[in-house]
Simulated scan of single mutants.
Amino acid sequence: MTYYVPRGGLPPQTALTTDRARFTDAYAVIPRRTLSDITASYLPGWSGMRMWVLARPLSGFAETFSQYVVEVAPGGGSDAPESDPAAEAVLFVVDGAPRLTLDGTTHELAPGSYAFLPPGASWTLHNASGANATFHWIRKAYAPAPGLDVPPAFVTREQDVDPVAMPDTDGSWSTTRFVDIADLRHDMHVNIVTFRPGGAIPFPETHVMEHGLYVLEGKAVYLLNQDWVEVEAGDFMWLRAFCPQACYAGGPGVFRYLLYKDVNRHAGL
């Protein structure tokens, strides 16, 4: 499986300024070349790390989550990565071999590794290897629900989870789900969506869930509100609730993205 990995740097002075970057009332597109050295951020409590912030709660836009791409240099890491006790998280590794210690158990991660971290989880992350490690870090304030426990932490890999074909698509559109959709303890899902060449979302999905979509592999044209936008590996799409969306993956290879959505809770009033 292939995962796009940003490497930073800076476009040359000869590069065209015109790009596909967009920010509208309904959606945003952050092209991959935006993840350059000058747009990187840093966090207290970490060493040898930098990150690119793809999404953060914005009033009047998408309000439920934040998403980072984190790069940790050899020897870098943190013994106290999360400062918010109410935050749950998903980590998805796209490069390198970070070491996650979760509730006293050490996990040697690799590209395709996926970790769910409930609020209050005790975890650390370090890179003891000789090369950079890169992962997505998706955070949300957990919304408790009466009669439901907080879901437990777990670590798995994309390679160990079978994708589920969407109905009546003959496998051209499938979803790799890391959480059972019937498990209402979870208030967010982070999945991987895959289209074979020619696969499509054949209608404009218009729904309450907010989305972050990071393209892991391939290219496609994506309907965002009223605009068809070309996207490729490394691009990020950020959608507020009810933004119409559809997709056509023309190939030549598969088109895959990491998808966040909020689920299973009342709308706040």
Rank of each mutant, 00 (worst) to 15 (best):
P31R: 08
R33W: 08
W123L: 11
P151K: 10
A26Y: 06
A233F: 00
D149V: 07
P119L: 14
G48P: 02
H207W: 12
P197W: 03
G77Y: 03
W238A: 02
G9T: 06
V215M: 06
N191E: 13
V190P: 05
H136P: 05
I138E: 13
A241N: 09
G251D: 12
T156M: 12
I192R: 06
P111M: 13
D79C: 12
P144M: 11
Y114F: 12
H211M: 15
T105Y: 10
T17H: 11
F61S: 04
G218C: 06
F195Q: 06
D79Q: 10
P6H: 05
P12R: 10
S83N: 02
L258C: 11
T206C: 15
G250M: 00
Y248H: 09
W238K: 00
H189W: 05
P31C: 12
P146D: 09
Y27L: 10
P85D: 08
T18Q: 12
L91V: 01
P44H: 07
T206N: 05
Q226L: 07
V221Y: 00
P98Y: 14
E108A: 15
R139E: 13
D170N: 15
R99P: 02
R139H: 02
F255Y: 05
D235E: 10
A26F: 09
V69Q: 02
V5H: 02
G60W: 03
Q245R: 11
T175L: 08
F203M: 07
G8A: 09
P74K: 13
A246D: 05
Y42M: 12
T124Q: 12
E108M: 14
A249N: 08
R20W: 00
K261R: 14
W52Y: 05
T39G: 13
G104R: 06
G120K: 08
T24K: 03
L148Y: 01
G96V: 04
M209F: 10
L91M: 14
A80P: 04
D160L: 15
S41N: 09
V179H: 04
H189A: 15
H207T: 10
F23Q: 01
R265K: 08
G8Q: 04
V29T: 01
F154I: 04
F61W: 05
L16T: 14
H186G: 12
F61D: 02
H211D: 15
F203D: 05
L216V: 02
L269G: 13
P31G: 13
M51F: 13
A141H: 05
L35E: 07
Y222L: 09
P6R: 10
T176F: 06
R157D: 14
V53D: 01
P98K: 07
L259I: 00
L109M: 08
P244Q: 03
V231W: 00
T194S: 13
